[in-house]
Write a protein that binds this DNA or RNA. Sequence first.
DNA 1: TTGACATAATACCATTTGGTATCATATTAA
DNA 2: TTAATATGATACCAAATGGTATTATGTCAA
Lengths: 106, 106
Amino acid sequence: MDNRTQNAFRALADPTRRDIVQLLSSQDMTIGQLTDQFDMTRAAVKKHLTVLSDGGLITVETRGRERINRLEPQGMAPVLDWLRYFDQFWDDRLNSLKEAVERKSK
Amino acid sequence: MDNRTQNAFRALADPTRRDIVQLLSSQDMTIGQLTDQFDMTRAAVKKHLTVLSDGGLITVETRGRERINRLEPQGMAPVLDWLRYFDQFWDDRLNSLKEAVERKSK
DNA sequence: TTGACATAATACCATTTGGTATCATATTAA
DNA sequence: TTAATATGATACCAAATGGTATTATGTCAA
């Protein structure tokens, strides 16, 4: 049982959590800042952050009374590894992904 | 609300369903054949197949009294598209993914 | 036509999930 | 020191989820 893979996939299964990941990709944020972006309580956002943390997708740094939530890029690795299992099935949408990465790395 | 993306991520969130996807990647299978691979009832497997179908990851072809479950590679596209959003965050595990695809396409 | 086979559908159940409300804790600033 | 701020923790709830058992439907073969 690969818990890292399971926890990462589980973390990405909820739309609010995927939105949080996108928000954190542009900027580190506190729970308070994140909560402002959603129509739910801070406690609910906190639960989502716990699931994201369990999934290895974010890390938290305490700074004074604030806690900075930060995207952990390596956390996506188990997901990418699992997807690679299906090389032979992917269509050219994956090729465009590949090309985008190539453009970036130039 | 992008239901395709949500349904695909949801479909991949369960370990049994990911196992089913892997099994179907090597061979099309009926429910009966799939059920043999798991320690659960046919009804439970059927539910997972419904979720996978909702997620666009499999298609079903009726052949006589059998129903052949087949992997639908394009179904992974919404997931890949979403992941591409994070180009700038990915580490070299993505590069190795890119390289694997390049090797294949030669 | 009848029985066996392959599957679908439904009702039901325990647990998990996503949310709220409330209370507790720690830090900053006046 | 005390009040405001930022967050954590807990109890609780409704709905979704993952499973079973049971019943129904359609197809193949003798």
